[in-house]
Simulated scan of single mutants.
Amino acid sequence: MLTRNHWLGIGASILAGAFWGLVFLTPELTRGFSPLQLSAGRYLAYGLVAAALLAPSWRRVRPMLGWRDWRTLGWLSFAGNIIYYVFLANAVQLGGVAMTSLIIGLLPVTVTLAGRRDADAAPMLRLLPSLALGVAGLACISWQSLANPQHGSMAGSLLGLLCAVGALLSWTLYAVGNSRALTRLHGVSAHDWSLLVGVVTGAQALLLAVPAFILNPGEHAAQAWWYFGGVVTTVAILCSVVGNALWNHASRLLPLTMTGQMIVFETLFALLYGFIWEGRLPTGLEWLAMALLIAGVLSCASAHRERSPETVVLPT
């Protein structure tokens, strides 16, 4: 049956999804700035905030990290933050929030499939209903989004679709690698690990800042730059610091196949924020899609509840 840790993990996943859904609105709020500038600005702010928060515990955390851990931090930061957000910002600006949410919403499917061989995974046969419900829900959103492009031409929407697929692949790599790294690390807390990812991401963003702000700064008034700085800093704190800490906590409490399903809440909140931004209610297909996605999560939880005690291996 689901333990108290499972329920705590589910709650942390929902809160993380609520914060992460905000990143889909950021490209709409800052349309005058390029996706490269958005990614560099957000992660420079994330790195500074993370470094300040990590400073008090740095002497305790540093001896616990080996070369393997630093390599893991490097590629997790690059795949799950820098590359992911460049793709996502392009996808939102070219294809809209709904289309991007649709593709990123496939994360529960891709992460669950990636973790199907883990020791704590539920049998694939029990996961099939939840995967089928998730795909059905995403098919409904796909029909709604591609039939009525929100931004520009169909060619632009297709390019946005490709960028969204790139974001999906990069974040799948991050979700799987991050979950396994947290399972391996016992002396580093989930919060400290999130801050370490932030520091490394900030260092990588320094390299990204050269082409983003120096080689091609664009024409912006001083007020626009202040607005941009406020938006990316807010996103860095709420989505990167708070959201990632909640997600890392959930990753230690839930098996990877269940963690994959929890990512659906990012999609649901992104759609909700998109509807508020566009000033409209969901259509019938969109209501059906959200219901199917939630049903998929409940089905996944049921698949884990039915497992026998001796087969359950929870992360520390």
Rank of each mutant, 00 (worst) to 15 (best):
E266Y: 10
A147W: 00
Q223R: 08
E266H: 15
N81S: 13
A167C: 06
G105D: 04
H191N: 12
I294D: 00
A167M: 02
W143F: 07
G95C: 10
I82T: 05
V232C: 05
R116S: 13
P56C: 14
G105P: 10
L133Q: 08
T267F: 13
G260M: 15
I237G: 00
N90P: 00
H186D: 11
V109W: 00
M1G: 09
A119C: 05
C140Y: 00
L38C: 08
V188H: 12
S157I: 01
L254S: 03
L65V: 11
L44Y: 14
E286H: 05
R59S: 14
G115Y: 08
R280H: 01
A295N: 08
G21Y: 09
T72D: 10
G74H: 03
W247C: 01
D69L: 03
G166L: 04
S189L: 09
H186T: 13
R116H: 13
L182E: 12
G260E: 15
V23D: 06
H220V: 01
F213L: 09
I214K: 04
L288E: 00
G9C: 07
I10D: 05
S39D: 12
L293V: 02
M290Q: 05
A222E: 06
T201V: 05
P27W: 13
T26Y: 13
Y84R: 01
S179L: 01
L102S: 09
A121P: 03
A121D: 08
V176M: 06
T172C: 06
V176N: 08
P149K: 02
R117I: 14
W277N: 01
L288I: 02
L8H: 05
V188R: 12
S101F: 03
T267H: 14
S130I: 02
I103L: 14
P27S: 08
L271H: 11
G152T: 07
T267A: 15
A12W: 01
A139G: 12
A291C: 07
L113I: 15
A181G: 07
S57P: 09
T233F: 09
I104S: 08
G260P: 15
N5T: 11
M290I: 02
A289W: 14
A132M: 04
S39M: 15
V97Y: 09
